[in-house]
Nucleic acid binder design. Structure first.
Lengths: 169, 169
DNA sequence: CGGTATCCACATGGATACTG
DNA sequence: CAGTATCCATGTGGATACCG
C-alpha cells in the first residue's frame, strides 16, 4: 500500500477504480450497509459493527468527505449527531445488493433480514441482473464487449438515447 | 420505504460480509476486472495493473482458492498458465457493473472501454437497477424493507416462487 | 514465464484512556 | 455522545533479486 496510487496505466480509465477509491476499505461497505438498515448514530454503528472507535470515526469522516453520507447535529441536542445517506450514497444500493446476493448464492446458511421488497405487492425484488435497453433480461451468452467508438456509431444509427457507460473498461 | 422502523442490530447474517471476505482487498476487484476484459496471464495482469509481483501472486492464489478463478497450465507449454473466471467469478459481473456505473456517475471524465452490449442489437446494456419479480424497474420510493418471516408468508400466499434473499440484512 | 524470497514503508485496525 | 489521542499489532503493498 506504499504511496503509489498513480502509476496505474490506462486500465484505470474506468468507474470501478473511482468507486473503489471510496469503498475499497473493508469497513466502508459494512458502515454503508448499517446505514441502509436505518442506523444513524455513532454509537449505533459502534456496537452493531464491533469496529474500533478511531476507525469508525475515520471512515465516517471519509464517507462524509466523499458525499456519500451527511453529518447533521440534531437541533435539540447539538452533541447528538445523525449520519444519513445522501443521494449519492443511496445510489450505491444496487451495487451492494448485487454483492450481497452473490455472497448469499455462494455461502452456506446466510439468512437474510430484512428483505427489500416491491412496495406494491410486498414481494421480494428480483435478483440484480443485466438488462437490455428495452428491459429484457440478458444472460451471459447474450452479451458482448464493444469498443466505445463503435457503440457510439450504433447508437447514432439506431437513433436512440446517448451511449450508456456501463461496461468494465 | 416503510415497515421496518426499528434499526437492525444483527449485522452478521448477511451475504455482504461473505462477499467482502474475498473481494475486500483493493486489488481483487481490479484483477477481476482485467479478467473480465480477457486478460488471462500473470504477466498480462502484471503490466496492465501495475501491481507488484508478490501481491498479484497472492491475490490470484486467493481468488483461485475461493473458486472465483481457475488456474490451468496450457497443454503445449506447462510453464504457461491461464487464469480464467469460473462461473462463480462470472457471477460477479452485475456487482462490478453496478459499482462501476456508480463510479462513472459520480466521477468526472471517466471514458469507458469497452462497453458491454446486447449481442442482438449491439446497443449498450441498461444501467444496473432494482427490479420487481415481474421485471418492472423499481425506484427508491417503491421499495420497502420487510422481515424475512413476513415475506415468506406473503410469498406463500401469492403462491409464487421461493423467497429471494436480496436485501441488506 | 510464473512465480518465491526478502526487505521495507506505511495503512489499516484494535484497545484504551481521555475530552468537550 | 461523539469523538481525539496514543500505542501497538498486523496487513497490504512496493521494489528487487532470484529460481525452475
Amino acid at each position: 500500500m506504499g504511496h503509489l496510487r498513480e502509476p496505474l496505466n490506462d486500465m484505470q480509465n474506468c468507474g470501478l477504480p473511482a468507486a473503489l477509491e471510496v469503498m475499497g476499505e473493508r469497513w466502508s461497505f459494512m458502515i454503508l450497509r448499517a446505514a441502509f438498515n436505518r442506523l444513524h448514530h455513532f454509537e449505533e454503528f459502534l456496537s452493531a459493527l464491533g469496529i474500533a472507535r478511531n476507525i469508525l470515526s475515520n471512515r465516517l469522516a471519509r464517507l462524509v468527505e466523499h458525499g456519500i453520507m451527511k453529518r447533521e447535529p440534531l437541533p435539540d441536542d447539538r452533541r447528538k449527531i445523525e449520519y444519513r445517506l445522501t443521494e449519492k450514497g443511496l445510489d450505491l444500493l444496487p451495487a451492494m445488493l448485487a454483492l450481497r446476493q452473490w455472497g448469499e448464492k455462494y455461502s452456506v446458511g446466510v439468512p437474510s433480514n430484512p428483505v427489500l421488497c416491491d412496495e406494491r405487492d410486498g414481494l421480494p425484488i428480483a435478483p440484480i441482473g443485466i438488462h437490455a435497453h428495452d428491459g429484457r433480461r440478458l444472460g451471459p451468452t447474450e452479451l458482448e464487449w464493444r469498443d466505445q467508438a463503435d457503440v457510439a456509431a450504433s447508437v447514432a444509427e439506431a437513433g436512440n438515447a446517448k451511449p450508456q457507460l456501463n461496461a468494465l473498461g
